[in-house]
Design a protein around this nucleic acid. Sequence first.
RNA 1: CGGGGCAUAGCUCAGCCUGGUAGAGCGCUUGCUUUGGGAGCAAGAAGUCGCGAGUUCGAAUCCCGCUGCCCCGACCA
Length: 509
Amino acid sequence: MSKRALSVTREQNFPDWYQAIVRDGDMAETSPVRGCMIIKPWGWGVWERIQAELDQRIKDTGHDNCYFPLFIPMSFIAKEAEHVEGFAKEMAVVTHHRLKNEGGKLVVDPDAKLEEPLIVRPTSETIIGDAFQRWITSYRDLPLLINQWANVVRWEMRTRLFLRTTEFLWQEGHTAHADREDAMAETLRMLEVYREFSESVLAMPVIAGEKPANERFPGADSTYSIEAMMQDGKALQAGTSHYLGTHFAEAQNIQFQSAQGTREFCHTTSWGVSTRLIGGVIMTHGDDDGLRLPPRIAPREIVIVPMLRDKPDDAALLDYCVAIEKDLKALGIRTLLDKKPLKSAEKRWNWVRRGAPVIVEIGGRDASGGNVTFMRRDKLRDGDKIISHSRPRDQFVAEAQALLNDIQATLYAEAKARLDGNVITDIKSFDELTAYFGAAETEDTGGFKGWVRVPWARPDGAVLEAIADRLKASKLTIRNAPLAQDKIEGVCLFTGDPAKEYVLVARAY
RNA sequence: CGGGGCAUAGCUCAGCCUGGUAGAGCGCUUGCUUUGGGAGCAAGAAGUCGCGAGUUCGAAUCCCGCUGCCCCGACCA
């Protein structure tokens, strides 16, 4: 028997498999509003863990949380030219403030038209910049280090749960500095926070690097990203950090008086990660039985399923389970005793699909023998067979934290091996590159391709656009130029000029 | 916005061509059996067949219009 907990395997159809995990793993579902999602308790629990871990790191690096409004005056967006250009096409606009009943039908009241339309924030540079302009007067006010957890709306043409939704949740950091050097240090500091967070908390290895000019945030001087490799070989931009130069400061008059008495524009940064990370976790760690959650973001690290049989000895069995639950909780381990009146086997498979790191199954024989039977979600099967472990109860409890740590490390090591083993470095020409990936229309049957690292001369302007267009014909993009670089040799694969650095080329989400 | 497809029970879908009482599997409810692991049997609940107009004695089925969703493309820090 090779029965799997999901109806479709990664091999059969990766996009369908992804949707199956989101649905059967109880993460989220689509909403009545196109492109928006209802995040279910299990999916929300993961987001709460992400928030808790990342929020701590944001505060540890000196930032304070605050909250800015959902609505932004339309005129604010118009202040920075590239920023408008970048976001104009995907903005939700509020134009009226009242409905009225017209012949039994609810209609927008034309008399309630707003003087100035409001846009629903796609990001908050402009409204936060407006506040910074008032808050900052002196070099003594700098650096100003702010973060907010918020929802944003971008009217995307095509959406996929978690990966790209019309409304999504994120944190956006916004900072202002006295000079370029300090702002750039902040940009890279937060990129490093994201890298460390992604790898140690999400168990998702990433490559941190700088985006090419054509992939920059609208209005940024430079944009950095962390890129993760999904199990289908595509890249996922998992976080971004931008050095905004003085563009927004000049557009919004964010100035300070220096120690020398001169008036200077601030150098600003912004950086964010979103609910997209959850999509990344799914496509990094999921298997054909469902999600596999790294313990550090699992809402419940250990789930205990009592093998209830509807008999009098159930009570004793439950007592035994409750005692174990209490011991684990006392150790600070997020534990759930699943007492729902469902069949035990059904409960087991539900938790397998949801990706609970450790699933404990306790029957009458375990209880009377003082034992615990459990499964590791990261190593669920040997071939088609489920691997089930047994330990004396006290030993299980004593080793539980180490077990969880091992699962966290195993998931990371697996993903790390995939990333390290699938960056190809021996492609020598553009034709070889496109031949390797094949034509765009063969993508669905093309299989796993991974990423390609090529030497690059940092062209920009029209030359860069032409390269991007040509790559696009094979659905390829330049992901980033890794910060950690080997010594560069040879010439740019695209221009033939002496290479300045390496860049990663891949298909991407 | 272009090209294609779809809309029938909670879910996945059949029925439509050739008009005649609304179907299956899974899930759900109840009962009995089973019980160290994704159980069996039986009974049951559940659908204005996306919306509107038309043809017809009669429309899920045929015609017209509309809406929504999915896929491909365009778009996507």
